[in-house]
Design a protein around this nucleic acid. Structure first.
Lengths: 139, 139
DNA sequence: CTAATTGCAAATTGTTTGCAGTTTA
DNA sequence: TAAACTGCAAACAATTTGCAATTAG
C-alpha cells in the first residue's frame, strides 16, 4: 500500500517521520516495540525524536493503521494492520513473526455469555509459540 | 481457603503483610491493580510498603496463588486463582467482576496450527464487556 | 497563513533494587 | 540463628507533557 495514500485517507499530514515509521513496519512481518521502531527509523530520519515516534504510534493506532499487541510477558508491540476486519494473531516468541488468524473464538461462546447476562464488547485472543522456521532452526 | 495453609503449601513464610494481601483478594470477586491492592491492604497493615506489595504479588504469582490479567487498555490486574487448572476470564469493564470460563479455544485450533508448522506454547483469551448486574444498573 | 506536527527537555508513572534491620520457622 | 522477608530511599524504564519552532496543506 502506498504510504502517502494511507495517511491522506486518514486526514493525516504526510511528514517524513510518519512515512519512515510506516515503512519500517511495512518492511517486516514481525511485531516491534517502540524502541525497535525508533532504532530503525532513526537510520533514515536521524533527527527524529523518541516522543515523535510515541505520538505517531498513538495516532496511527487510533486511525486503525496499526495494531497493538501486549504479550503476557509485558511490553507493547506494534505491527501494521494488513488484514481487513477482525482477526487475531499467532506470534513467534523467538523471531517475533506475526501470523494473522481468521478464526475467532467469540462466535462459539457469544450465546453462552448472553445467556448468563453478560454483554461482551471486546476480547483478545493471541497465540504464542514457535514458528515453522524457528522450530527447525532448533529452539 | 485458609490463608496460612495456602502459604505454607508453597513454602512461603506466613507474614502479616502476605496474609493481608491475600485476604484482600479473597474478599473480592473483581480484578485489582497493585495500587488498589495497596490501598486496601494499608487499612489493616498501615506500615506496609508499596515495594512489599509488588514483591509479594510477584511471588504469589510465581507460586500460582494469583492470576495476572493485562487488559488491552493497559495496566496489570491481579486476582486470586480460584479454579483448578487452565481457564480464561470474562471481565466486567465497569465493576471489574471476574467470571471464570472453562471454555478454551485452543482445542479448536491446535491442529490447524501444527499443520502450519507452528508449535503453540501459550495463549491468552480474555473477554471484556458488562456483567449482568452492570447491564441492569444502566451502563 | 494556520493548524498540525515536531524536537527538546523536563515531568510523570509504574515498577524494581540495594541494603540494613526485623521476623519467621 | 539462618534464611526469608520487610521498609525505606533511591534508581529505573517506559511513556507523556508543555512549549517554542517548524512544516504541510
Amino acid at each position: 500500500m502506498d504510504v502517502e495514500k494511507l495517511l491522506k485517507e486518514q486526514q493525516l499530514k504526510v511528514t517524513p517521520q510518519r512515512k519512515a515509521i510506516i515503512k519500517v513496519l511495512q518492511n517486516t512481518n514481525t511485531v516491534l516495540n517502540a524502541q525497535e521502531i525508533f532504532a530503525e527509523v532513526i537510520k533514515t530520519q536521524p533527527s527524529i525524536n523518541f516522543s515523535t515516534v510515541y505520538r505517531n504510534l498513538d495516532v496511527l493506532l487510533t486511525k486503525g493503521i496499526l495494531c497493538r499487541i501486549t504479550p503476557e510477558s509485558g511490553g507493547v508491540l506494534y505491527e501494521l494492520r494488513r488484514e481487513e476486519g477482525h482477526h487475531h494473531h499467532v506470534i513467534c516468541k523467538k523471531c517475533g513473526a506475526s501470523i494473522p488468524l481468521d478464526y475467532c473464538p467469540m462466535e462459539d461462546i457469544k450465546k453462552e455469555l448472553c445467556k448468563r447476562g453478560f454483554t461482551p464488547t471486546d476480547h483478545r485472543f493471541e497465540i504464542y509459540g514457535y514458528c515453522d522456521r524457528c522450530n527447525k532452526g532448533g529452539l
